[in-house]
Design a protein around this nucleic acid. Structure first.
Lengths: 205, 205
DNA sequence: GGCTCCATAGGACTTTGGTCCCATGGCGGG
DNA sequence: CCCGCCATGGGACCAAAGTCCTATGGAGCC
C-alpha cells in the first residue's frame, strides 16, 4: 500500500545499452535494477516490488520470449516491455499475445520508452491494487473455521438456514451460530456484502 | 443462441488473395463473405452475425489499422485477424494492442490461418455468450417500474426495508410490496440471486 | 489437568422479511 | 368514463433470521 519505490528492471546483454537505459531511467527519477542476463534477473527474484521490466528480445541462452514464458510460469506479475534491435513480426506478436505491455525497437525515442514505462507502472499499480484487495478478502476468509467456511458458501448460494442445516446434517440453530460468526469475521454488514465477498474469492481461486 | 452459421469476413484489396482465402475457408466449412475494401465491408454492416474478420494490413484508402479503429469506435464486436504481406513490427504491435486476435504474415501456412480462425471464432462465441447473458439480465430489469428499480438497487446495497423506506420516504409496507415484485420480475429466488443480478447490470452499464 | 477453540444445540425472544386480502388515488388510453 | 398500471399502505399473520444466555463434548496445547 505504501508507495514503495517503483523499480524498473532492465534486462539486456549489451552492457552499453544496459548502462544507457539505466542512465536514462534514473534521470527520469526511477529506481533501476540492471541485469545482464535473464538468468541473473531470475535469480535475484525481484520479490514483489512494484515496477516493470524492460527486456531485450535477443539474448544468449535465455531470450526475452523465454523469459516471458518462465515468468508467466512463476506467476511473476510485473508488466514486460520488450526492447529489441532486430525485432521481427512473429516475435512481436508472440510477445504481445503473451501479455507484454509494449514492444519497442531500438533505437527508440526516449520519450516513447518513458511513456511505455509509465503505462507499465500504471498497469502494475492497478493489478497490484486488485491483488491486494483480493488478498485482503482471502485473509479474512482464512480466519473462518472449516465449518464456518462451508456455511458461508451455502449462505452465499442463497440457501435458507434450514436448507443449510439439512445439507450439513446439523440443527438450524447451529447454522445460525456459524452464520453469525461468518458475518462478524468477514466484516460483512449485510447478506449483500457477504455475497460479494464470497464471489470475490471464488473468482480468484 | 441458435448456432447461426458462423461467418468469416475477409477484407483484402488483392482479388487473387481474396479468392484464395475464400476458397480455403469455404473448403474448411466456413461461410465466407469477401470484401475488396474496408469501405465495402463497413457499408454492408455485418449486422450481428457470429464470426470473425480477416483483414489485410495495407489497403488503399482505409488500411487495416484504420478499419480496426473504426470498428472499435462503432462497438463492432468481431475478433480481427490481421494478414499482411509486408508487415512491420510497429504495425503488428499496434494491431495487437488494439485487441487483434492475431497478426499473420503472407504467405502463411493454411493450418496456421485456420487455427487462428478457430481461436477467433471461439473467442467470439465466448464474448457473444457474455453479451447475451448481460442483455437477458438487462431485459429483465427493463420490466421493472422506476420505483421497483430504485428499490432493487437499495436492496442489493444491503439496506433493510425500513432504511429503504426512510430513504425513499415511503412506508416499510410499500417497500415490501415493491421488493416482492422485484424478486418476481427478475426471477430471483433469493437475495443472493438479486445481488448478483444487480451487480451484473452495474458492470455493464 | 486446566485452557482455548470448535462444533453442537436448546430456550426465549425480537426483528425482518414475505404473503394475502383489501383499498385509495393518479394517470394515460380507448 | 371506465380499465389497467403504478404507487401507496393498513391488517393479519407466518416464516426466517438474528441475539441473549447457557451448556456439552472433543481436540490440541502448555
Amino acid at each position: 500500500m505504501t508507495p514503495m519505490e517503483r523499480t524498473v528492471f532492465v534486462v539486456d546483454d549489451d552492457p552499453s545499452v544496459l548502462r544507457g537505459l539505466e542512465r536514462l531511467l534514473r534521470s527520469a527519477g526511477y529506481a533501476v535494477e540492471a541485469h545482464a542476463s535473464a538468468r541473473a534477473f531470475l535469480e535475484r527474484a525481484p520479490a514483489d516490488r512494484p515496477g516493470c521490466v524492460i527486456v531485450d528480445l535477443r539474448m544468449p541462452e535465455i531470450g526475452g520470449l523465454d523469459l516471458q514464458e518462465e515468468l508467466a510460469r512463476r506467476g511473476f506479475p510485473l508488466p514486460l516491455i520488450f526492447l529489441t534491435g532486430h525485432g521481427d513480426v512473429p516475435s512481436s506478436v508472440r510477445a504481445m499475445k503473451g501479455g507484454a505491455l509494449d514492444f519497442l525497437s531500438k533505437p527508440c525515442d526516449d520519450t516513447d520508452l518513458l511513456a511505455a514505462v509509465e503505462r507499465a507502472l500504471a498497469r502494475d499499480a492497478e493489478a497490484r491494487a486488485a491483488r491486494a484487495e483480493k488478498e485482503a478478502v482471502r485473509a479474512r476468509f482464512a480466519a473462518l473455521t472449516p465449518r464456518e467456511h462451508e456455511v458461508a458458501l451455502l449462505v452465499a448460494q442463497g440457501l435458507l438456514n434450514k436448507q443449510i442445516a439439512a445439507e450439513l446434517g446439523a440443527a438450524e440453530k447451529t447454522i445460525k451460530v456459524h452464520r453469525g460468526r461468518v458475518m462478524e469475521k468477514l466484516g460483512a454488514e449485510s447478506l449483500a456484502d457477504l455475497v460479494r465477498l464470497v464471489d470475490r474469492i471464488r473468482d480468484t481461486t
